[in-house]
């Protein structure tokens, strides 16, 4: 792999890793709640079933990507990345400015545990089934986002394997830390990660969409890093300005 390719491969691996850490931590919190309350059998069964569905989706949909013309693929993936990445960046800016509260894994763990306990009181016989389904839903829904991110950052330039490697690395990292800590990973700097991922996905979105529409970016692949810096500086500036205006508005 030459240096120009690394200019795109490294952000693809980094974006897939960071985004996957956020999603896997969210899924891990719910699986942990299920495992702690109802045992690891339904938690693992639900998780494995969801992973099987996700693998099936990738196996079925993956080869279809090769049949789509590259410019159409770049526009489609670029627009989806812009919608997804700008949404994340908007939320991360608002959280960083203190406008909306930070994501709290400990609170989610408590809420999920309470929900399962409540269901236990009303439907005891089918509780293992409900617990397994809860784990299945969590892993499937968060996993769908991981699959989308891997495809989106990887498909535009044949970087599916590096992006998948980043996502797999995130799964292993969260699992290893989670097994060692054995409680919700509430100390993961989630908003910082989301900020970074929003920046990278937005940069990829502008880059792919532009390329699909015939833009020849100056510096070619390295422009991706330039766009990321622009989004990062703009996002931090916006968060700073909103934080300051919030403080001025307080009596």
């Amino acid at each position: 792999m030459d240096t120009v390719s690394w200019g795109v491969a490294a952000p693809a691996i980094g974006a897939a890793f960071a985004a996957s850490v956020v999603e896997v931590v969210e899924a891990f919190t719910i699986v942990l709640a299920v495992g702690t309350l109802r045992g690891w059998r339904p938690a693992c069964a639900g998780t494995l079933a969801a992973l099987a569905v996700l693998a099936l989706l990738v196996i079925v949909l993956g080869p279809l990507l090769d049949r789509i013309p590259i410019s159409a693929l770049q526009i489609a993936v670029g627009v989806l990345l812009l919608l997804f990445g700008m949404g994340w960046l908007r939320k991360a800016v608002l959280r960083s400015a203190g406008v909306i509260p930070l994501h709290d894994e400990a609170a989610i763990f408590a809420a999920e545990s309470e929900e399962l306990s409540h269901q236990a009181a009303s439907k005891d016989r089918s509780l293992n089934w409900i617990a397994g389904l809860t784990a299945f839903k969590a892993v499937l829904l968060e996993g769908l986002e991981v699959v989308f991110i891997v495809i989106a950052v990887g498909a535009g330039r044949g970087l599916l394997w590096p992006a998948a490697l980043g996502a797999a690395g995130a799964c292993v990292a969260v699992l290893v830390v989670g097994v060692l800590v054995h409680k919700p990973l509430s100390r993961v700097p989630e908003n910082t990660l989301k900020f970074g991922v929003g920046v990278m996905l937005s940069a990829f979105g502008v880059f792919w969409t532009g390329e699909g529409l015939g833009v020849e970016w100056p510096g070619h692949d390295l422009m991706l890093l330039g766009l990321a810096v622009v989004f990062l500086v703009a996002g931090m500036g916006l968060a700073n300005r909103l934080r300051q205006s919030s403080m001025e508005a307080k009596p």
Binding site: V93, L94, S202, F231, A234, G235, L238
Partner: peptide, 14 residues
């Protein structure tokens, strides 16, 4: 345009 849209969306939500 994307930067402008982001600025508008965050200011509007705030």
């Amino acid at each position: 345009g994307c930067l402008g849209i982001l600025a508008e969306a965050t200011a509007r939500e705030t």
